[in-house]
Nucleic acid binder design. Structure first.
Lengths: 111, 111
DNA sequence: GAAACTAGTTTGCAATACAAACTAGTTTCG
DNA sequence: CGAAACTAGTTTGTATTGCAAACTAGTTTC
């Protein structure tokens, strides 16, 4: 029988409401790391995510534009070092994203 | 203290391994609906997802190209009706995706 | 038989994501 | 010293998306 009408679940539309800034895997990885530490250096982030520098740079810029992280520029001796901190907004967005995902995951062990 | 080294979790890289075909919200919504019924009509799918026709059409084509659904063309009277069925591969991919998400979601009620 | 409607596809455009190439400076070594 | 190689990160160009407006093909209504 072909489904053409009747009781649509609300889940499909909820999926479309996911925060695309967070949903992008590269950025989700970044936010996840940032959420686990006070401040994280660029190169550390690059190593743990495996992203290229360029790619990481643009994703962190996008996250900064969204207000989800802040960039800290400093020097280690005379070498420039860029680090990042997740903001409260970023933490909130990540938490919300997790909640939304939980809501749309079927209960463990469904056919 | 800035994090520059030490014990990287494996999660960040796992996030990057998510199946992008499934990860796109529009397609995840489609697959989710298809997984819940034997066969689903185009227009029904459009209504429950809220996607535009063009958008839905291209996503179903992409899912078909990935082998995750099959398209069934038929006539209802003299009107053409397109329906979709999830394939075994599609079901497997969706299940795997769910497992991966579960693995990377923190335990309920973490700060 | 023109106008309006149904069902879906193609198209063109804007926004990504990504890595190669570049910038700016530092350290090493002949 | 000064060229070569290295560090840290940004900018750029390109290829891929995601999306809806415009189109195709046919059907029903007036």
């Amino acid at each position: 029988m072909v489904k053409t009408g009747s009781h649509p679940s609300a889940i499909p539309k909820a999926i479309l409401d996911l925060d695309r800034i967070v949903h992008e895997p590269a950025r989700l990885a970044v936010l996840t790391v940032l959420a686990s530490a006070e401040e994280v250096a660029f190169l550390f982030l690059q190593r743990v995510t495996g992203l290229s520098k360029g790619n990481l740079s643009s994703h962190t810029q996008k996250l900064e534009a969204a207000g989800y992280l802040e960039t800290v520029k400093a020097f280690q001796g005379r070498i420039p070092v860029t680090s990042f901190r997740i903001t409260e907004e970023g933490r909130t967005a990540l938490r919300l994203y997790h909640q939304q995902l939980r809501a749309l995951l079927p209960k463990e062990g469904k056919p």
